[in-house]
Write a protein that binds this DNA or RNA. Structure first.
Lengths: 260, 260
DNA sequence: CAGTTGCGTTGCATGCTCTGCAACACTCAT
DNA sequence: ATGAGTGTTGCAGAGCATGCAACGCAACTG
């Protein structure tokens, strides 16, 4: 819609592949060197690109700062975080929080047993959308037509023999997940890793996020992990209540409606 | 330099503070709504902003993905090299930079000693992992289970009488290194060569590389070499800061912990 | 229910601002 | 020294962004 901005923004993914000099940037953009220079300068002033000592351009620190701020400003994340920590303390395994956005599912928080807090580096990484338990929950809640559109547009990489093979199988799985209100990934992404997940819902009942517990086979079997399901669901429900109620300082004590 | 791009980029920090609707964005930019709309659309096409269900704009997923890629492409060596050179100029000894990768520790950079007697090492060559100071730092930062797995899998060649004899001794040493934040190798690899090392850490605090100063006994005693420790640590910290994204032009902030 | 207010959206004419060119400055290697 | 390869600057022309005003739409409100 805006040519200049369009070109400027196209520089960033280009630099994400690795440092590049002025000529390379100009070539890949299909513009004159001087044009590329102006764009890079503007990006530089805003800290989005950084000029290293050999004069080549790199992505700048501002990007990290922004990504970090953005992640910290997510309401769900803020509300959910203490719950994730508590869940981690109770079961000891890795706990993830993820949201859906524009055909992607992203981890926005993570608690590992050995790294108590902030592993920002991994947060923000797109999830293996066709197999991850959290992805199933988030996609299963999309409107029917959109869900099908997305499912048909996806690639279905064969991570393992248990990976979702195609759109049909995926849609069937999503229907099941939608029905039962929770999801699993049993070795679909990495052979030895299992995962159970539960949805976090907003006031209108729509799934705004999903949380999961992951553990390798060598620690607990899939069956043992499944015994954690009630705990995961209770935690997710607690987050849902707090998120819907908007009562950050007033923990609600009411109903233990663990649902079906 | 480029007005349009300048305005578009100004939107991002603005959205980092929290979601905003079209009117707010236009106001804060000082432009007409329609102008803000075009800019936001362009940002949206590139995935830098996301439109939530209430039509307000948020920072988008692409930012996270970019930040993620940028982190992975950060070239430690490129950033560290000038620091290594300076360190070498100040102390005169051989300076190494090493990273851990797939059960191996590799030298990825080296600045030769100015003294005639040099130790043998080669960039890209695996380090004597059970004794080298840099290896201790890199392994000490691994997750506990992985650390133990690696330690148990290793061979413990007796290079000298002071070489690490077995996995138990190695793990004990790693614990100590992890605790104190630096490491030494006093004649563990070659009888007459000593070595002090300090870690380089990324934004998340994990050790991404380690650097060391090595010198033979005939030039300086082990005790003399140890007096260089503060200098090595300061240098490593400087690299960590720059690697983490702080601009190198930033006015110096006193670490205060400088002995001599 | 009609009127009203507030929002996002669209087409269009104006002219600002971005563009490509060409010449210059600079470093490095021959 | 001379050349090739960079990054940089000034300039004129026009492409493209801009603001305006009108429209569609939803949510309030009397």
């Amino acid at each position: 819609m805006s040519q200049t901005v369009d070109r400027a923004l196209s520089i960033l993914p280009l630099l994400a592949e690795g440092p590049a000099d002025l000529g390379q940037v100009a070539d890949r953009l299909g513009v004159h060197k001087s044009t590329a220079l102006r764009l890079l300068r503007t990006l530089h002033e805003h800290g989005f690109v950084y000029r290293q000592t050999d004069q080549r351009y790199r992505l700048g620190a501002r990007l990290f700062a922004l990504a970090q701020e953005a992640v910290e400003n997510l309401d769900v994340r803020e509300i959910a975080h203490p719950h994730l920590v508590r869940l981690n303390e109770e079961c000891g395994h890795t706990v993830h929080l993820a949201v859906y956005e524009e055909n992607e599912v992203l981890y926005i928080d993570k608690v590992e047993s050995r790294y108590p807090v902030r592993m920002y580096s991994r947060i923000g990484k797109p999830v293996a959308i066709t197999v991850a338990a959290v992805a199933k929950l988030l996609l299963a809640d999309l409107p029917e037509d959109e869900r099908r559109a997305v499912a048909e547009k996806l690639d279905y990489p064969t991570y393992t023999s248990r990976s979702t093979p195609n759109a049909a199988a995926f849609l069937k799985e999503l229907a099941k997940v939608r029905e039962q209100g929770w999801a699993t990934d049993l070795g679909g992404h990495e052979e030895s890793i299992n995962c159970v997940a539960a949805p976090i819902r907003g006031t209108d009942g729509r799934v705004v996020a999903a949380m999961s517990v992951s553990a390798p086979n060598v620690v607990v079997t899939a069956d043992e992990l499944l015994t954690l399901l009630p705990l995961v669901r209770r935690t997710a429900d607690a987050v849902s209540r707090e998120y819907s109620g908007r009562t950050p300082a007033t923990p609600e004590q009411d109903t233990g409606s663990t649902g079906t």
